[in-house]
Nucleic acid binder design. Structure first.
Lengths: 303, 303
RNA sequence: UGACACCGUUUUUG
DNA sequence: CAAAAACGGTGTCA
């Protein structure tokens, strides 16, 4: 069955607090945002997240029809992207392409999929577009007010585990970023933030979040001694994380270690983070955010 | 006293309907345009017209400071022009110089004058530059809409002879353009504007301005019954112009008639205007503006 | 290769 | 009504 979804972005003040949203129907949507973004980044991200959500739900083989009111986003994806890729991701005027990382992420995500776009005039009463508009703006407004952006249900079947306290960023779990104090080293702070992102995604069963963080060829050593490709797998309920130590392991590479406790158990965890651009493959991974990528993670039960 | 003025050009669609403007202050400016022009012709013409207006006002000996946002125009006038003249008006690559006639006109007009240029970034909030921008674009839009470009008051002392009400565009002399009412025929309006330009140039003794309006082989019948080539010649002081009537005289050709009065006399005046491209000569005149050209003008004393 | 200008289009805001 | 974020193009020169 063809999936039809509306996407929209919003940026209060442009640039300013921003949000994105995709909507399939009243019970199937998602949204998110940032403290500072442009309108066009919102529009693009909405498409990217829709692509990922459908893929994570195992529905990448179904045709996807996207309703968008941004001619910019539609042109980027259906037209300009191809010329840019041919020219080595350069614009006609040689000036840098805006929102490049998100565009490249879409470029990878959309490969081999059947996606069509339809332009709908903004604020013209189209119900799905209105809903996406509301959600995107709601996300931006939430973030402007200092609250986390309300995320939607997504596709049913995208994650199977119960929500964990780590996922809501409330700070009670020791995983909160920023705010009170800054980490003592700017570069290690980047790795610490990435580790926390990884933990939240893993515990929430957020496969696309994990994929964002994974280095090409990433693997994991599980508590049972097995190794599997990828980062996804079962997580304990309501874990508590000890202090995370980050140690440099070479230019751009970091090792993190910490302990984890949960009802009935504890473990030692370690991760190896590699720089985003640290592979010599012909097609660079060009990660969406330029941050470090998780190459290896290992868990050992404590007893 | 140093005269400071901003200049700007505009071309809708580039090339397309175009305009030029110079602004000294809110009460001292001028503007004009063509049905088809390039942005750079507009920028250059604005400078040329400023040079002519200051000269016609008898202020050629005062230093002139020009604010321009076009590096092209500034470089043409302050740098490249000299090299081109030395090399017989040829570029280094031997390809033809663009806008050559206007550049040579500036080259002649600027000789012996103290003119300095200052580059101001476009659309950066510089008040004088913004004003010139508005005027130039307004002229281009007027012409696109089929109206004559609204011309400004120019300099208050714009003729070496006794000041005439024709020059100041106040409307009391019947030479004011635009503003309150539009001329009832769009094409005749173009001819009327040209006729007014001709009158201003003649009365001001502006030979260059007259040459711009002259068709190849233009002649004039003077009140004494003689005929001479060209359009320049003695003008009465402080003439007053009656209503100008424009009548179509063939495809693109117009006849205008009106009366003129001055202290101690009156006359009947008539002009024949031909389309700019209406000659089969081998070397086309390539008139600066593409507007109609004055082929014949005749004066008869009234008595 | 660079620079400036001139436009066209859509969206997003205030 | 005015502005920002984005893209495409032309006009010009060294």
């Amino acid at each position: 069955m063809t999936i039809t979804a509306a996407v929209d972005g919003s940026a209060l003040g442009n640039p300013g607090p921003g949000g994105w949203a995709w909507v399939v129907d009243a019970g199937c949507w998602d949204a998110g945002g940032w403290p500072r973004a442009t309108n066009n980044l919102g529009e693009l991200t909405a498409v990217l997240e829709l692509l990922r959500a459908t893929a994570a739900a195992g529905r990448a083989d179904e045709p996807l029809h996207v309703l968008a009111d941004s001619q910019y986003a539609i042109n980027v994806i259906t037209k300009w992207r191809h010329g840019w890729r041919k020219r080595g991701w350069q614009k006609a005027d040689k000036k840098p392409i805006a929102n490049l990382e998100t565009i490249q992420a879409i470029d990878r995500e959309i490969a081999g999929r059947a996606v069509t776009f339809e332009w709908v005039r903004g604020h013209a009463g189209h119900p799905l577009n209105e809903m996406a508009d509301d959600r995107a703006r709601g996300a931006a407004e939430a973030i402007q007010a200092g609250r986390p952006a309300p995320s939607g249900p997504g596709f049913s079947g995208a994650r199977s585990l119960a929500p964990s306290p780590i996922g809501d960023g409330s700070g009670s779990d020791g995983l909160a970023d920023g705010g009170d104090g800054r980490d003592r080293d700017d570069r290690s702070a980047l790795v610490l933030a990435a580790e926390k992102r990884f933990l939240r995604a893993w515990i929430a069963g957020d496969e696309r979040g994990l994929a964002d963080l994974a280095a090409p060829g990433s693997r994991r050593g599980w508590p049972d001694g097995t190794v599997r490709e990828g980062l996804a797998g079962p997580a304990p309920a309501a874990p508590r994380i000890g202090r995370i130590a980050a140690a440099p392991a070479g230019p751009g590479t970091w090792l993190t270690t910490y302990t984890m406790r949960w009802e009935g158990g504890a473990s030692l965890e370690s991760s190896v983070w590699a720089p985003a651009d640290a592979d010599g493959s012909a097609a660079p991974p060009a990660p969406e955010d330029g941050g470090p990528r998780l190459l290896w993670h290992q868990s050992t039960l404590r007893r």
